[in-house]
Computed example of a mutant assay.
Amino acid sequence: MENDDLRVSINTSIIDTLKKMDAARHKVLLVFDDNNFVSIITIGDIQRAIIKDSNLNRSICSIVSRDNKDFANSNDTEELIKKKMLAIRCELMPVLDDNGTLTKIYKWTDFFGENDIKNDSLIDLPVVIMAGGKGTRLKPMTNVLPKPLIPLGDKTILEEIMDQFENIGCHNFYMSVNYKYDIIKYYLSQLSHIYNISFFKENKPLGTIGSVSLLRGKINTSFFVSNCDILIDQDYRDVYNYHKKNGNDITIVTAVKNIQIPYGVIDTTENGVMTGLREKPNLNYMINTGVYILEPQLINEIPDNEFFHITDLMNKVKKRGGKIGCFPVSEKSWTDIGDWKEYLKIINK
């Protein structure tokens, strides 16, 4: 069968499956045991495994569901398959015959546009965008343009971020501004699409979360916070569902960073006695992407007019026994536009 880029062996490790999803630019893969179709594995399966602190070098055999009922039958009409896909918002729909043999695959784009979503699951949360930085990593461009207005195709990074939130139902934006804020306001006022934005200005640099103290009394629900120079290929409704289900004070969207050490690593104990040898080990880390969900009462814990980072807030919440959760995305689902190398990579795709 075609679509070899969507096939993965049941014996593949979790981290290598995640890498294959990145390479194929799909969040669902077809799992095979030799030439026999077993099931599908989704980014959600992997995210749940990471949240449970599973060993990412373990095979996906342990996290694949073999009794998945969300498949189509070869006797189903295309209209029925379309309704099934829409109901569960699935990217791939395997079609099996009565013997469980895979006969066909339907993709979301066979029936819908890439940005089509199921409207009855929209959420409407406030979104705070931190847009006051000078963008020093993108100089000399940011000597002229403020970082949020860096172009990406026909839009700016700021529009891409806000459009992603609007697509899931979020329409109320609060924008922290400082550097060249008048240019940002003027640009947005000239767009044919009018965003609902409330600007708030820090008169001096207040760190990565300090200016949010200015929103005290204005937000009374869970809310998103996003840096203005990152893009994440993730449905933020899943992040919100995870945040509420786990009763988090803060949820951090994290990217899984995999690093292979190109040498043998020796473990030692006291007096330099070798206890083990690992040949070219893979190390996995969680990287802070710069997108969060916060509970509204946390605004009261941010000091007025003081330089205060999001990490300071995390430490404060952790110290008092609050709950901070991490929602993982794959490494290539996260793009840092504020870095020249990454910016050039994305505009040259």
Rank of each mutant, 00 (worst) to 15 (best):
V8M: 07
N11A: 08
D16M: 04
T17A: 00
R25Q: 08
K27C: 05
L29R: 01
V31T: 02
V38E: 05
D45Q: 05
K52L: 10
D53Q: 12
D53R: 12
I63V: 09
D76E: 12
K82V: 06
K84Q: 11
K84C: 06
L92K: 01
Y106I: 08
L122M: 14
I123Q: 05
T136V: 15
N143S: 11
V144W: 09
K147N: 12
I150E: 03
I157L: 11
E160M: 08
I161F: 02
Q164S: 15
N167E: 14
Y174E: 00
V177Y: 02
K180R: 12
L188Y: 00
S192G: 13
F199S: 03
K201T: 13
K201N: 11
K204G: 04
S211Q: 09
V212F: 05
V212Q: 01
F224L: 05
D229A: 05
Y242M: 06
N246E: 12
N246S: 08
A255H: 04
V256Q: 09
P262K: 08
T269S: 13
T269D: 10
G272M: 05
M274Q: 12
T275H: 05
L277V: 12
N288P: 04
E295R: 12
H309L: 13
D312H: 11
L313H: 00
G321V: 06
T335C: 09
I337N: 00
D339F: 10
W340S: 14
N348T: 15
